[in-house]
Amino acid sequence: MNTYSTDQSSYPRADVDPPSGKLFPHKHLLGIWGLDPTAIKHLLDVADGYVDLNRQPVKSAPTCAGLTQINLFFENSTRTLMSFEIAGKRLGLDTISMATGNSSIKKGETMLDTAATLNAMHPDVLVMRHGDSGAVKLLAEKMDCAVINAGDGRAEHPTQALLDALTIRRRKGSIHGQTIVISGDVAHSRVARSNIYLLNAMGARVRLVAPPTLLPADIDRLGVEVFHRMEDGLAGADVVMMLRLQSERMNGAFLPSLREYYHFWGLTREKLKAAKEDVLVMHPGPMNRGVEIASDVADDLDRSAIEEQVEMGVAVRMACIDILTRDLRQKDTAEVRV
């Protein structure tokens, strides 16, 4: 009997069961760049399980009880920070959140000194957000524990890309073969970059739609199709992800005005007609209603997955924390037995 699946849509066996025997052979989650499809699929599979758990009345699965999680945010955040904190707590970790406002960063301490200080307190998971690209990677080099990137500069926001992927997979059945449009301020967006890497790795067709001022140089070399007209980019799309437009980009430096941006690039019912009937509308939040997205599109129960994305966020973050601490927990129990 042939025990291997002949279904073309499933992954070949070598991918599912990698030679190293580890489905996620990384110490940290610093970005999607460099993750293979197996690792991504594994993260999504585990997260899928946590979605079910999160819908139970009792949501705790204290598999990580006794471990410590520090959320270190050098940049303002509400939803990501909350999401990580809830994820940690549901897994039974002791979570501590620190925002720059009450840290010694303002007293002139360098980031690496802060890292050394935190490292000495022996956390097991460090979740970090920073305004500079590459900052989380730099810090991870100094930490003994698992580090999760919660967004660094314009570079990466891996958990956002994973939660977007989980949302798409659950709604559409698979990511492979979907035509996915990312629209908005790609130039300054870490969400866009992480999503491009992830969706490409999983076999989606990725399109970008934005005015030229909001697209970085040579972005097409990352394996995307670039459009400037919304109607062209949306034609036949299965999914459309809108990006948040920062207010400081709107006053003439990158765009003439809000009014003009909404006119050409705001997602409205009218423009959405070019996409497939069952197009899925997504947004990483927080939304600017009437700027990048019309309210009736954002609130469309059939097509908008915006609230679902937030729900998936907790599950994905639980999966990341769970997977990155698995070795640690196994090692600990082994040591206790001895």
């Binding site: 760049w33 690209s133 660094d152 970059r193 140089a217 040579d218 070399r221 990352l222």
Partner: peptide, 15 residues
């Protein structure tokens, strides 16, 4: 330098 590497790394770049 403005190009693929800077775009991927998310670094502000000059042409």
């Amino acid at each position: 330098h403005e190009g693929e590497v800077a775009t991927r790394l998310g670094l502000a770049s000059t042409p």
